[in-house]
């Protein structure tokens, strides 16, 4: 071995490493945003519903922003870990959060002290309607028959449940009946449990089951809304069959892009413009449509108002079902 060449090689590596590090740590001037990559934190694992929705918009938005948006999944504690992480970053618009509705429920369920009050909505992407599904050969023809059955025999109906404050948790709290909530490790295993007949009904967003409904593996008993959906006029709406639930409806999960509170107005405006353009593109609208997500596109005041209503309806529902603490203690008004 010739030590001379090795030394030269070693030295060149050192120089190389030092130069690259110098290049990567050059600071950014604050005049025009964005100067460097933007990090988009997703509070759930890669491949999930929020993740795919986020990646699709990020890919379109980075063209508008003129900088790469790097997606980072930080799952854990129903998103509380990622939420806390983004809150700890500087409010400069270089770290954004792409989340679902869960943050609204952190305080009353004791998951975290944070809520969407600590964030500025960039844009609300869309909302999903939950549907009640069952196997095609199930004995029930409508949601009313299921509710009557539970009234007669409490605990006799098993509901697939993917988390303490997930869709089925909130909807069963809304229905106020004594269901048996069988836990599953996520939507995939839950769907397998439903198709395998280990539970009686599932309450999930339309997008998750639409193909199984179209191929006849599952049938829809009811859509959790006040009126029938335009796209699926055959599905009875809960509010129409049982008017007593109308006051809670429509209810469903939603998705949004957030920046930390205190982000400078010009930065926020740039983010809003870019994401709005990406959101409005035919490509993204088609994507939302295929996932059966109803586009929202709300920004600013409208987005905040939407969230406030959602937070109020849901936290009070969960409080009445003994699944969360008193929302009044956090200053959440009752609608």
């Amino acid at each position: 071995m010739n030590f001379g060449t090795t030394a030269v090689k070693g030295l060149s590596l050192v120089v190389g490493a030092l130069t690259t590090f110098c290049l990567t740590t050059t600071g950014f001037a604050a005049d025009s945003y964005p100067k460097s990559d933007i990090k988009a934190v997703i509070p759930f694992g890669a491949g999930g519903g929020t993740d795919t929705l986020a990646r699709a918009i990020v890919n379109l938005a980075e063209k508008e922003l003129g900088q790469a948006v790097i997606v980072q999944n930080k799952p854990g504690a129903t998103g509380a870990v990622a939420t806390e992480f983004v809150r700890q970053q500087p409010a400069d618009g270089y770290t954004i959060l792409i989340a679902a509705e869960n943050q609204n429920l952190y305080r009353t369920t004791g998951l975290s002290k944070l809520s969407f009050d600590d964030f500025e909505p960039v844009i609300l992407l869309g909302e999903a309607y939950p549907v009640v599904v069952t196997l095609p050969d199930a004995k029930w023809k409508s949601i009313s028959e299921v509710l009557d059955e539970v009234d007669k025999n409490p605990k006799s109906v098993k509901v697939m449940n993917t988390g303490p404050v997930g869709i089925s948790g909130v909807v069963t709290a809304m229905l106020g009946k004594d269901f048996t909530l069988v836990p599953y490790r996520g939507e995939g295993p839950g769907l397998a449990g439903l198709l395998g007949g280990h539970v009686d009904i599932g309450i999930v967003s339309i997008g998750a089951v639409i193909q199984h409904v179209e191929t006849g593996n599952l049938k829809v008993l009811s859509v959790i809304s006040d009126k029938r959906l335009k796209a699926y006029p055959d599905w009875p709406a809960l509010g129409e069959e049982r008017p007593e639930y109308k006051k809670y409806l429509p209810w469903g999960p939603y998705y949004g892009v957030y920046a930390k509170k205190g982000t400078p107005q010009p930065v926020l405006a740039k983010l809003q413009n870019s994401f709005k353009k990406a959101w409005s593109s035919d490509k993204y609208q088609k994507f939302l449509d295929e996932r059966r997500i109803v586009p929202l596109g709300l920004m600013g005041e409208a987005a905040v108002a939407y969230q406030k209503r959602w937070e109020s309806v849901t936290t009070w529902l969960l409080f009445e079902a003994n699944a969360a603490s008193d929302p009044a203690a956090f200053g959440i008004p009752r609608l």
Binding site: G47, R55, K286
Partner: peptide
Amino acid sequence: IPGDAVTAVIIGSLVIHGLNPGP
């Protein structure tokens, strides 16, 4: 339905490519 963590991500990639994983 993903069988493990990797297939969950693959499902995501199918979705982003405009396919609808499912039956």
